[in-house]
Design a protein around this nucleic acid. Structure first.
Length: 778
DNA sequence: TACTGGCTAGTTTTT
DNA sequence: CTAGCCAGTA
């Protein structure tokens, strides 16, 4: 963590210099609502900030205001964000207001980094040591696999990933092992889910480790079980601020509530900022309800809506607002702008296939570039990452510079994780997961059987693996070859541990990689990737230069996993809609607006109407990223899982306001079948919304369905799916005991029904949970 | 212990 | 289609 360093005492200078003025500088240029949000600092406050309405500005100015009016010291403000990027941006902006003295805002950070900080202070109260390791998903899976093996659970049938997902969901909901309802834990591995969770937690304690979920969950437990600790934080935090509140999950909500309990709810100095229309992480446990319920949680809360948009043209705002208006259960905001000119209409282009889509987008990008637009000001936002490849390929042939945001992150790359495992083991010799990772990397001739033996000893003696190695090399149990290898490995680690006292971390890692043979391994590797891997390791060492202690660096990498694209070159950005939240571009391309792709079929199948609404919010996020220009496209044909499928334009196209949209249909020119009677026809109707279900898109959707082979249930209809989900299993088209047929699994019998998910005992494939839409009556 | 073919599964991912 | 994982073989 960058702010781990001792804090400089805040300087009174810049603060007092602001006092005595009637109208501080930082209030200049704020609109009335923004100003209100900045100045209302006592009592609960909910700021509903639509896209591009100056949310971050309000948040940072508010902090600046609290500081300059001396209502609190930097260390007395708790300010929470979801991403490191947001935290960093806030720090930078506050520093600009108040001067460098704020560099030391120690409690400005992500939920996770702040929780980790608190936990390290009171680690012993939650059965950890303050040096505990933070596990990432990779370690988590490895650990779960071990537990599954110990329980003799078939990994094929009960994948570790699935259990990791369940664990995550439980922790997101703030549930300790004892709190998980039996109906929940009973499902996995025939009722062993609860026990596994319990064992998993126990294992974490012996490893002196916590996973991401634990950072919050254990913090909550700490507060609940130790009121005196909680009281300490009540006294400490005079003001609380939360960014992107719509993305908070139950655990984060509980965490905040506990910390806000120092005062009666109606007097809590808590300010949450968010936009219910940009809640796109429901599938990850985010509860939009948290923001919708704020006024109930904190009675008398003031609500301020920021609706004046400073980013986009009127046409873009109109399109976004019209689409999002189709959602129910909103707090209801409408964006508006002062800019008189409507700007370019949103364009919608239908193309023959995804290849042509990439070609078209490529051409347009080159055209805008010729007109003087920087590639940096253009972005392609896709629903799913598989859509990216086609654009990348096209840009390579065109020679257009591009940058992909997302994908495997730097710290998740294999070679980086290997290097980190070496470092972790030096910092924490009890880190068994790290040990297992590198014991045979590079290859040392220490295979499964040796590792098994070591683990056996470790378990019996109740010591970490590295310690078990020390014991084993003194016995005759190992084969001579392995014994020699292990002996020198231990000696190496002792040497590294000793060196770590004097060498700065970046030199230590270079030394270790060289000495361990890792670099030799890469040098011997003739594959294309090995060069890149070496580069990455160099980059790792470079990034470590600013850290003085190994512990400080490790904390940083486990929590601050951001992929800083330090790349300053001019390039088009390709990324998912999810990662685009919070960003803006002059020109935004939104390809792949086909029903099934976007909105994604799976979202609708799994969560029905709620899923569709979240997809719609994604559309809203996508459109509002554009400042000047938004260009939507849909392919008539797309290859999914290797086979070509014809697709109809997204239902969201039908929800766009016709007078802000311009339609072209390139697809028909290529002999593809267009839809309706000419591309623009449907937008010429007096009121395209008089019946949404009569629009060509829908008619085609319906026609498509009745033609589907097998004539399965209408899964494309959000309403129908939603109904079956909402009624909690009563409305399934299937009955318990019914014989059904699944294209892949064959015949089987329905043994459980949950909404549109059926558990079926297949004759050949065993028991599986499948979506109703994938089966038919047998 | 290390490699290679066959098989399976296949959204979104702030920490 | 294709990438990642496991099981069987050298």
């Amino acid at each position: 963590m960058a702010d781990n360093a001792p804090l400089p005492r805040p300087q009174a200078g810049p603060i007092t210099s602001q006092l005595g003025r009637r109208e501080p500088d930082y209030l200049n240029g704020l609109n009335p609502e923004q100003r209100d949000a900045v100045l209302t600092i006592d009592g609960p406050l909910l700021v509903l900030a639509g896209a591009g309405t100056g949310k971050t500005r309000v948040l940072t100015t508010r902090i600046a205001h609290i500081l300059t009016t001396k209502r609190a010291w930097p260390s007395e403000i708790l300010s929470v964000t979801f991403t490191n990027k947001a935290a960093r941006e806030m720090k930078d902006r506050i520093a600009r207001f108040v001067g460098a003295s704020v560099e030391g805002m120690p409690w400005l950070g992500t939920f996770h980094s702040i929780s980790a900080r608190i936990l390290r202070r009171h680690a012993e109260l939650v059965d950890l040591k303050s040096t505990f390791t933070i596990l990432d998903t990779d370690d988590q899976i490895r650990l779960i696999k071990q537990l599954l093996a110990a329980e003799n659970i078939d990994e094929k049938r009960w994948p570790a990933r699935q259990f990791a997902g369940m664990l995550d969901a439980w922790k997101n909901r703030g549930l300790l092992p004892k709190d998980v309802p039996a109906s929940d834990s009973g499902y996995y591995a025939n009722g062993k889910g609860g026990k596994l969770y319990h064992d998993y937690q126990a294992r974490l304690k012996t490893l002196n480790a916590a996973d991401f979920g634990d950072l919050l969950l254990e913090c909550i437990r700490l507060f609940r079980e130790n009121p005196e600790v909680l009281a300490e934080y009540h006294a400490k935090f005079k003001y609380m601020l939360v960014d992107e509140y719509q993305d908070s999950n139950t655990a984060q909500y509980l965490w905040l509530r506990l910390l806000a309990q120092g005062k009666p709810a109606s007097e809590a100095n808590i300010c949450v900022v968010g936009d219910d229309d940009q809640s796109i992480y429901g599938w990850r446990g985010a509860e939009v309800d948290n923001i919708l319920r704020f006024e109930t949680d904190f009675p008398g809360a003031k609500v301020i809506k920021l609706e004046r948009n400073y980013r986009s043209t009127a046409n873009i705002l109109k399109a976004a607002s019209t689409i999002i208006a189709n959602n129910e259960g909103r707090l209801g905001k409408t964006l508006f702008t002062d800019i008189a000119e409507a700007g370019e209409p949103i364009s919608f282009t239908q193309v023959y296939d995804s290849e042509e889509e990439a070609r078209t987008v490529g051409e347009e990008i080159e055209q805008y570039q010729r007109q003087g637009e920087a590639l940096n000001s253009m972005a392609i936002l896709v629903r799913a990452s598989f859509q990216m490849r086609e654009f990348e390929e096209r840009f390579i042939t065109l020679g257009v510079n591009y940058r992909v945001v997302g994908g495997p992150r730097f710290y998740e790359r294999k070679e980086i994780r290997d290097a980190l495992a070496y470092l972790r083991l030096v910092a924490q010799p009890a880190d068994d997961l790290a040990f297992e990772r590198i014991i045979n990397v590079p290859k040392r001739g220490l295979g499964d059987s040796t590792v098994k033996m070591l683990m056996e000893t470790a378990r019996h003696q109740r010591v970490p693996l590295l310690q078990a190695v020390r014991m084993m090399v003194e016995t005759e149990d190992l084969k001579p070859k392995q014994r020699t290898t292990l002996r020198s490995l231990v000696a190496q680690f002792d040497d590294w541990a000793w060196r770590s006292e004097s060498l700065p971390p970046y030199q230590l890692v270079e030394h270790m990689l060289e000495e361990s043979g890792y670099m030799d391994m890469l040098a011997a590797d003739k594959s294309v990737e090995s060069e890149g891997r070496k580069e990455n390791l160099k980059e790792l060492s470079r990034s470590m230069e600013e850290f003085e202690t190994l512990g400080g660096f490790l904390e940083h990498i486990s929590l601050v996993m951001d992929r800083d694209s330090a790349d300053a070159s001019d390039a088009v950005t390709i990324m998912t809609l999810h990662s685009a939240k919070g960003l803006e571009y002059n020109t935004v391309f939104l390809p792949g607006w086909e029903d099934g792709t976007f909105p994604s079929q799976r979202s609708m199948d799994e969560t029905g109407r709620a899923g569709l609404e979240e997809e719609r919010r994604l559309a809203y996020v996508g459109i509002t990223r554009g400042r000047k220009r938004v260009r939507i496209s849909a392919a008539q044909n797309r290859r999914i899982h290797g086979l070509w499928q014809s697709a109809i334009p997204s239902r969201f196209i039908d929800e766009l306001p016709p007078d802000a949209v311009e339609v072209t249909d390139r697809g028909s020119a290529y002999g593809g079948y267009g839809y309706g009677g000419g591309a623009t026809s449907r937008f010429n109707k007096a009121d395209p919304f008089e019946s949404v279900y009569e629009t060509p898109g829908w008619q085609r959707a319906r026609a498509n369905q009745s033609n589907r082979k097998g004539g399965g249930p209408l899964t494309i209809d959000g309403d129908l799916v939603a109904r079956s989900v909402d009624l909690g299993g009563q409305s399934s088209g299937y009955a318990l005991g019914e014989r059904v047929f699944h294209l892949k699994f064959g015949y089987g019998e329905v043994i459980q029904i949950e909404g549109n998910k059926l558990t079926i005992d297949f004759e050949k494939a065993g028991t599986k949970k499948v979506l109703e839409s994938f089966i038919k009556k047998g």
